[in-house]
Amino acid sequence: MGLAKRIIPCLDVTAGRVVKGVNFVGLRDAGDPVEIARRYDREGADELTFLDITASSDQRDLILHIIEAVAAEVFIPLTVGGGVREVNDVRRLLNAGADKVSINTTAVTNPQVVADAAARFGSQCIVVAIDAKASSDGKWEVYTHGGRRATGLDAVEWAQKMQQMGAGEILLTSMDRDGTKSGFNLPLTRAVSDALTIPVIASGGVGNLQDLADGVIQGHADAVLAASIFHFGEYTVHEAKLHMMQNGIEVRL
């Protein structure tokens, strides 16, 4: 027995509420973030990820208060992403109680932020989030700005570059699958995970518990992230873990 594969519920937060969309649009309210975080902690979530999808900077500071409130009573690792533009943003999130900070668009526009943040705070707290979409040549292209802007970067090569620059972990989201409930993009997940020495979190597309197990077994993911299946009460985190265990995957129960 050794390291357990992690299940990470993801909370997309805007204006102080948890929401969930399909293919990055069409938001549906899922509730109060602190209350939801508490529930997932009780159910045995291994970590929690908060993505601040707020467009307006007026509301951006809300996420700091939410993280502070969660960190005061939930004692598992918390990752926060969304709108991280400079090293000082990383510091503010860590001070609010985040354990890891996820960097997405800024990693592309200014990769030095990843290197500087990793050097200052340690690779263990720098997650690079990659939103990838299938391109016509059988590869995957990196998108930024919440999936709206193509970069021309190859997802596998980009992930390798981020590892080299000091990322401690990759959060890999398939834009084609996100919110569709049709399962992870397994070839994408496997290609990225096998190309790296750092852990990869699979994200985007979970519709049922077998999808989670497939992400680990076929996608070679070190952790699996899901939102809707947990938010709307279809499954508990505990049920997800039991299912993964029945598939021979080591989990923390």
């Binding site: 992690r6 401690g168 852990p199 990869v200 070679h220």
Partner: peptide, 20 residues
Amino acid sequence: VAMHDNAGNRLKVPHMGWNE
């Protein structure tokens, strides 16, 4: 060098997550 567990799974570094 790439490390593997008994089941043949590749073990990443950092060692990240819940272990016994």
